[in-house]
Simulated assay, not measured.
Amino acid sequence: MIRVPLSTGVELDVAVAGEPGSPTMICLHGFPESHRTWRHQAAAFARDFHVIAPDQRGYARSDKPQEVEAYAADRIVADLIALADHFDAARFTLVAHDWGGAVAWLAALRHPDRIVRLVILNAPHPLLFQRSLFDDPQQRAGSQYIRSFRDPALETRIDAMGLERFFDGSFAPHVDAAAVAGERERYLEEWRQPGALTGMLNWYRASGIIVPAMDEAPDRPAWLDAPFPSIKVPTLVIWGMRDKALQPVQIEGLEELVDDLTVVPVEDAGHFVPWERPEAVNAAMREWLASHAA
């Protein structure tokens, strides 16, 4: 791990692998993880890429601004571009999961000149996700946890129950138990860092995504049914089809929003597909990268 000061004003812990002269691959993790999301991919692709995997702001030992607005999508996208600039990566392959994927979709829309290829793993396109929260009852039900995570009193309740119980009750039931068995203490050690729990949850609080309650009928945002700019960057989407939080509806209609799209479903994986089924993920990435040479 190295400590990287960014022009955005935060310092991130960053894991690097491979040779600096190789093409750059930046890997963005999501909640509630760290650079270790990519432990199987970093080693596999370091032969051909300079792999850069940060602990994003709010996580582990990276900086954790206190204000909720510090976790707005614009700030995180700016971190990504500043990170690439730090490593002199004018263009790079971007690989992202969960909240990292939310950042990646936006970065691909705003900085297509910097991102040569995009790999998304179980992270919904913002238009499809927001639309599904209004139109798909199953997805709305699966996303109610976001409303809980936005509750400012949540940290107090977690403190009362203890991080171990929070891990066992809110995270462990949704992952491949065998695959995560040896990682429990690593998660808890990262979550125990001062400010980490609030930093991680602030990603949800800063998001503009509307998550209606199950019995709610809010006004529908006009942009959901208006023309939406397409992704111009060649994109591979790998989806663990057993994801309980992000339903397979998230890959329906993607072809209308991405000009050059490949979708690879992984039938026997859940949300955390990068380490639940690393062989399938690595094989899909390797084949697609070879067919979409930079």
Rank of each mutant, 00 (worst) to 15 (best):
E155H: 06
I120Q: 11
C27H: 02
G240Y: 10
V211E: 01
E252V: 14
H35I: 06
R277L: 02
F171E: 04
A226S: 14
R220H: 05
R114K: 15
E190Y: 00
R110K: 15
A290R: 14
T156A: 15
W105V: 14
V14Q: 03
G58E: 06
W288N: 06
W275A: 12
P112K: 05
A177I: 14
H97V: 07
N282E: 07
P152A: 03
V116H: 12
A179H: 08
I115G: 07
H174L: 13
D113P: 09
A269G: 09
V281Y: 02
A196V: 06
A82I: 08
Q41I: 09
P54M: 05
V266S: 08
W38G: 07
F45A: 07
G21N: 12
G9E: 04
V175G: 05
D259H: 13
H40D: 08
I238W: 01
L12W: 03
A177E: 12
T8Y: 01
R192P: 08
A280L: 12
G195V: 07
A217Y: 01
F92D: 10
P248A: 01
A178M: 10
R157D: 14
P152G: 06
A293N: 10
D79R: 02
A84I: 05
C27F: 05
K244M: 13
F171W: 13
M161A: 13
V233S: 05
F87G: 01
A70W: 02
G270I: 05
Q247H: 12
S148L: 14
L109Y: 08
A102L: 13
A72W: 00
